[in-house]
Design a protein around this nucleic acid. Structure first.
Lengths: 216, 216
DNA sequence: GAGGATCTCAGACCACGGTCCGATGCCATG
DNA sequence: CATGGCATCGGACCGTGGTCTGAGATCCTC
């Protein structure tokens, strides 16, 4: 298992030392430390770590601004935010900046190591409370899916997804390498099952169900 | 480092075997396997695993329903959803059900192991794309507007908004108390100005620009 | 008051989209 | 092996949708 190189950023030296102990004891390479945001930006530029463990509250330059600058220069770098409190504004702005995850400081040693390894492999993480809150927010703004897509066969779902992109029947046939006749039957079945009339209505439903999402 | 006990649920035996190999090779204890949702509920009750690796698409009972039943009985159990496609509806409903995370099946072996260890310690995870999407949804604002709506006259914008709801020309004429001929000219002008071909494409553009938003 | 932009409408044309009728092959389930 | 679901195709039908051309009415600005 390849181990990520880590940069530890926190204004408290004790915390840094503790983290360094925890990580090195589990075979994770600590590339360096920084005591504030400005130092962090500097250190990242020199050391090119895979993961940055970034405290939010710090003197000189806080973790959010430091994250912004680091990711602007090194988009492939993974930033794991650390904080004592799970204040919403921190979470959302950190994630909006492109941070890969968010950890409370009361994590266990094992947990911290696992989290670092995980974001090192490229995935993001969120603590359960934060994930739940995000989902709830989303669920609140998104009142249930109108119609159920389950009666559709896999192929039909595939067709609907492309239909949701606004493709014509000929384009559909081209991208799926099918005859237009086949495309028509698929489309007709979709309409029948979902009680649609138009492909326009199909596009609406694709967006409403989340089969297609804006911005992709 | 304490290792979580894992239950692998997938209808494809090859997948299960592969996952078992990956996890055991990295010192993670595989408590058992299940081939569909019903078996999974059963196995979880017998084995009490810390983590369930749950495929979504399965015969008999799908992963979502199985997750619901498992978490109803064993709320401390962590469920990690697996899927081939990152279809939104799966993501949201899975997370709403209380799943701890969501993984695409093309994960690397290291990644899978790290993810299992992480959720075993209690935290949730989301793939970067999904996290980003959640945050964007939450943030509400869809900044990336492909085409500019400014060349449209007020009336045309009004028509486009209704067009985005999937209305036909006759419905359009009815709701705006216009003749169908007038509707047609408006629609034609909109198409010309925005370089659209279909009303289907118009619906897409309405959603992409934020003129129409899902859930309203 | 001349001009431009906008909103309104009409008639005619044709293609694409949607429907209905068929048909075949495949595979899983029983 | 028989049944049913799924995916694939063809042909024929007709209507809505989209295009073009032209035109009257209002409201603005210059």
């Amino acid at each position: 298992m390849t181990s990520p190189r880590v940069l530890i950023v926190d204004d408290q030296e004790l915390i840094r030392a503790g983290f360094r102990l925890i990580l090195t004891a589990r075979g994770i390479d600590v590339a360096g430390e920084a005591g504030d945001g400005a130092e962090a930006v500097d250190a990242e530029r020199r050391l090119h770590p895979d993961v940055v463990l970034m405290d939010i509250r710090m003197p000189v330059m806080d973790g959010l601004e430091a994250t912004r600058r680091i990711l602007a220069r090194s988009p492939r770098c993974r930033v794991l935010m650390l904080t004592t409190f799970d204040l919403d504004r921190y979470v959302y702005s950190a994630l909006a900046l492109g941070a890969s995850g968010f950890l409370l400081k009361d994590v266990t040693a094992d947990h911290l190591a696992a989290a670092v390894r995980l974001v090192g492999t490229g995935d993001a993480l969120l603590s359960p409370t934060i994930t739940r809150r995000l989902v709830q927010r989303f669920a609140g703004a998104q009142p249930a899916v109108h119609r159920d897509l389950s009666p559709l066969t896999p192929r039909e779902t595939e067709v609907l997804a492309l239909l949701g992109k606004g493709l014509s029947n000929t384009e559909l046939a081209a991208t799926l390498t099918l005859s237009e006749a086949t495309v028509k039957t698929h489309v007709a079945r979709i309409f029948a099952k979902l009680e649609l009339r138009d492909r326009a209505q199909a596009v609406v439903l694709a967006y409403e169900t989340g089969l297609v999402t804006p911005g992709t």
